[in-house]
Design a protein around this nucleic acid. Structure first.
Lengths: 252, 252
DNA sequence: AGAAATATGTTATTTTTTAACACGAGGGTA
DNA sequence: TACCCTCGTGTTAAAAAATAACATATTTCT
């Protein structure tokens, strides 16, 4: 089917770096050239490849050449984040009303979410941009000052926003976690915003890849008891898991 | 000479990210298309650009925005918009406080703005994202519901935002204009938001490429008398210009 | 100066891409 | 069940762009 084929094309392209349409036709003899073209077009829209004369090339390939600076940040523990995002995506129901933070994990979640009718609040513009591709998702952006490092907003005025809006579920992530210091982040405003979110939300799911564990950031916005579910990867330490479960947190 | 030209092409490309051959021809009117093609070929050999259908894109650009889609649905009257954006960019002073709308013209303006210390409010997340690359620009996003077609937000709650913030200058654009119906757009919420902006702003500059002229959209948010400066391209009809100048609008 | 190398322009040809329409397979609804 | 709709796909014609090939400068070097 379409989706698998597109995925496969992306993989091949990532692997080989560059392919001509002719080569792709050989690889996929049972579909027409036009279909492959359309697939490439879609992949280009998603920013995964660049179409060039005669075929296409992988964006990763281009980035590999010399781009370390920016790329690095987004590739920390990418695989784990994607796994976490996929898990989280299964937890989103139709017609639900959700807050999503602006972190990279949320970004991956935005990619993974299926296009169902739901309402999502977010303070991350990259997240919002990703979600904008889903037809059925209603997106609301929390305004405020933009932090350039993580492309998310925060402001004291967010309080007013939240006053007039409701959401049952908040799916957030932290940049650091220890059992003693709880979940922390590096920006005070963000921490304040998240505290507000926690007050508003009926349930809170925390996405936390294992690289965050044992680290401490300046502003704690939540403790173990504040969350309902922790979504993590399989490198998550067993002892922490039992610890969390003792506090009635579901770890998945 | 060849070398300087190639260098210049590389620089332009790094700045704009992507250019068509047509645009390059305008930039270099004294050489033939073929020469430019050969230049691009050379630059590709050197690994600085990637040639794509119709033109080329900077490798840096690809490396920079890994998540964003480079795809251009935004190719309507691009040249005019860039010209307008360049003009508008010259009007932005250090330490000023500006509202910028979320349209494509504003997007180009965001690219052209030099990295000076200033404060920019915007309701366009694509605009905000572009601005995020400037170190010295302080960005505030107006929250609200995201409209997927133009990636800008609008909401009744914006009023509250504006209540607590000031800006001297608003630089906006419209999707349609006639002298009788004034400046109009297709979304009621956006129109309301712009009206609020107009109330708050001391000065209003309107960016309007000539393709918008003579068209009417459902919601009028301003008339000629509401704006101070109109920034347009050289296809702007002379008779309209005199008309505007009669109403003390500066046309540039 | 004059030959060789380099750079540019012009035109025709080939290749690639797009646009437009058609068709059939599901999926939901009255 | 019949109908309508959307979606994915294929086919073809038309447009656009890239290349190749050749002609004509322009520079460089001896």
């Amino acid at each position: 089917m379409k989706k698998e084929r597109i995925e496969e094309i992306a993989e091949i392209l990532d692997k080989r770096g560059k392919m001509t349409l002719e080569q792709l036709e050989k690889e996929f003899p049972n579909v027409s050239q036009m279909t492959l073209r359309r697939d490439l077009y879609k992949l280009e829209e998603d920013g995964r490849i660049i179409r060039v004369r005669g075929g296409a090339m992988s964006v990763k390939e281009v980035q590999k050449v010399s781009g370390e600076a920016y790329t690095k940040k987004t590739t920390i523990n990418t695989d784990a984040k994607i796994v976490i995002a996929q898990k989280a995506a299964t937890l989103i129901d139709e017609d639900s009303c959700i807050f999503l933070d602006g972190g990279t994990t949320a970004m991956y979640l935005a990619k993974e979410i299926s296009d169902i009718k739901c309402n999502i609040f977010t303070n991350g513009i990259a997240v919002a941009m990703e979600l904008a591709q889903k037809k059925n998702v209603n997106i609301t952006i929390v305004g405020g000052q933009l932090m350039k490092d993580n492309l998310s907003t925060s402001s004291p005025a967010a309080k007013d926003y939240f006053a007039a809006s409701n959401f049952e579920l908040a799916i957030v992530s932290a940049t650091a976690f220890t059992p003693e210091n709880g979940f922390s982040c590096s920006s005070q405003m963000e921490s304040e915003l998240l505290k507000m979110v926690f007050q508003k939300a009926r349930h809170v799911y925390m996405m936390l890849d294992s690289s965050k564990i044992g680290k401490i950031n300046p502003y704690t916005f939540a403790h173990i008891s504040d969350i309902d579910v922790l979504i993590t990867d399989d490198k998550f330490p067993r002892e922490y898991k039992t610890l969390l479960e003792q506090e009635n947190v579901v770890v998945m």
